[in-house]
Simulated scan of single mutants.
Amino acid sequence: MANIVEPVLTAELIQALQEERIVTIATIDFEKGTPNVSAISWVYAMNEASVRFAVDQRSRIVENVRSNGAVTLNVIANESVYSISGKASIQADRMEGVPLKLALVEIAIEEVRDVMFYGSKISVEPKYEKTYDARAAAKLDSQVLSAIQAL
Results as ranks from 00 to 15, higher is better:
A147V: 04
S120P: 00
L151T: 11
S83Q: 04
E63H: 11
E129D: 02
A147Q: 07
Q57D: 12
L13D: 06
V51E: 04
I148A: 06
Y82S: 03
E6V: 06
Y44L: 14
Q18V: 13
R60M: 13
K139G: 02
L140I: 08
V144M: 05
S41M: 13
S142H: 05
P7E: 06
A137N: 07
A88T: 08
A137H: 12
Q149F: 13
W42I: 02
A2L: 04
S83Y: 10
M46Y: 05
K32I: 13
A11I: 14
E20C: 04
K139V: 13
M116K: 09
I148N: 02
V115N: 07
G119V: 08
E110W: 06
D114A: 05
P7S: 02
D141N: 04
V144C: 04
A147Y: 11
A11T: 14
I109W: 03
M95D: 05
I109Y: 00
Y82N: 00
E110S: 05
V112C: 01
Q57H: 14
T72I: 00
I76S: 07
S120I: 03
S120G: 10
M1C: 02
E96W: 03
L145H: 10
V23A: 15
N68W: 09
L145P: 00
I109M: 01
S67C: 03
V71S: 08
G119L: 10
G33P: 02
